[in-house]
Computed example of a mutant assay.
Amino acid sequence: MSAVRVEVDQERCVGAGMCALTAPDVFTQDDDGFSEVLPGRAEAAGEHPLVKEAVRACPVGAVSLRTDG
């Protein structure tokens, strides 16, 4: 079975923080204000109810879901 991971494209992120506001137990912002996935949360993304909403909320499309496998 394929796992679903969430990723933040650091080159695309502008630090809007919509992902962290939408799913704060999955995303955070680093010291420079750019979004990142909290440690250990990337692999559980497919099970989190707000991750798909966080993907949609990103104004620049920096947050995405990927299927491993």
Rank of each mutant, 00 (worst) to 15 (best):
A54P: 06
F34C: 05
V6D: 03
C13R: 02
L65N: 04
D30W: 06
D30M: 02
A20D: 12
A57K: 03
V26R: 01
A62M: 11
E36A: 05
C58N: 07
A16Q: 10
G15M: 01
G33D: 01
V60G: 05
D31V: 14
L21H: 14
T67Q: 14
G69E: 15
P24H: 01
A62P: 11
D68F: 11
C58F: 04
Q10F: 01
G15A: 03
R12T: 15
L65S: 06
A16S: 13
E43C: 06
A44K: 07
P39W: 07
G15Y: 00
T28R: 10
C58V: 09
D68R: 13
F34T: 05
E36W: 05
T67F: 11
L21N: 12
V4H: 07
E7M: 10
E11R: 15
E36K: 05
R66H: 13
L38Y: 04
D25V: 03
R12G: 11
D32C: 07
D68E: 15
D31R: 15
S35E: 01
A57D: 11
V14L: 11
C13S: 09
D25P: 02
S35L: 00
F27Y: 04
G40H: 03
D68Y: 10
R41D: 01
T22Q: 09
G33V: 02
R41P: 07
E43Q: 14
R66G: 07
A20Y: 09
V51L: 08
P49H: 11
D9S: 08
G40T: 08
V37L: 12
P24C: 00
V55L: 00
C19G: 00
D68C: 09
R12M: 15
E53P: 01
D31H: 13
D25I: 03
V4S: 12
A57W: 08
T67N: 12
E36H: 09
R5H: 12
G61K: 05
D68Q: 12
A3H: 13
A20Q: 12
F34L: 15
T67A: 15
D30N: 14
P24T: 03
S2R: 13
R41N: 06
K52W: 03
G15K: 00
M1Y: 10
G69Y: 10
F27H: 00
L38Q: 07
A20E: 13
R41M: 15
E53D: 13
L50C: 12
V55F: 01
P39C: 08
Q29G: 05
R56Q: 13
R12P: 09
V51R: 04
V51D: 04
D68A: 15
V63H: 03
E53K: 11
G40C: 06
V8G: 11
V63A: 05
R5S: 03
V14N: 07
L38I: 07
D9Q: 08
L38N: 02
R66A: 15
V37C: 11
D30R: 05
V60N: 08
P49Y: 09
D9E: 08
D25H: 09
A62R: 09
R56C: 01
C58M: 07
E47P: 04
C19W: 00
F34P: 04
A44E: 12
E7T: 10
A20R: 11
